[in-house]
Design a protein around this nucleic acid. Sequence first.
DNA 1: GCCAACGTTGGC
DNA 2: GCCAACGTTGGC
Length: 154
Amino acid sequence: MNYWLMKSEPSVYSIDDLQRDKKWYWDGVRNYQVRNMLRDQMKIGDLAFFYHSNANPTGIAGMIEIASEAYPDHTAFDPKHRYYDPKSDPNNPRWWMVDVKFKQKFSHVMTLAELREHPQLKDLLILRKGNRLSITPLTKVEWQTILKIESAFT
DNA sequence: GCCAACGTTGGC
DNA sequence: GCCAACGTTGGC
């Protein structure tokens, strides 16, 4: 069982969209480091926080579950799609995606400033300067700390 | 909108 | 293989 944090711009796809859809595919990963984690380490049943980036407010908006093994990201094959990549060959796909399921929407968006207040989260990758990976792993302690912060609001 | 940080591209 | 130029991410 692994724990993740997955970023999405809510203007593209938000926790509310996933709550409506129940289950969706996580497309658009176009970074090799993220691709490798998604393809090689993500397992069905892993849990992830859904993070809203480039938003107001930005922060953790809810919890989701990985619902499939990785499979080829078909949006890379579609010339009309915003995530099209001519270098991804259907016979040897460069980019991969997983399915995700809605679990829970947080009572509030947990901002970076709020996360920074907790010493247990000092090594959280998204708090590190310059970290731009759209998917990052969390330790179990980090995962539980964030859940505990959230539960204090409910 | 600004800009720091980082990834990718391509000339050499 | 180096590295400058360029593009993208994402907080603020």
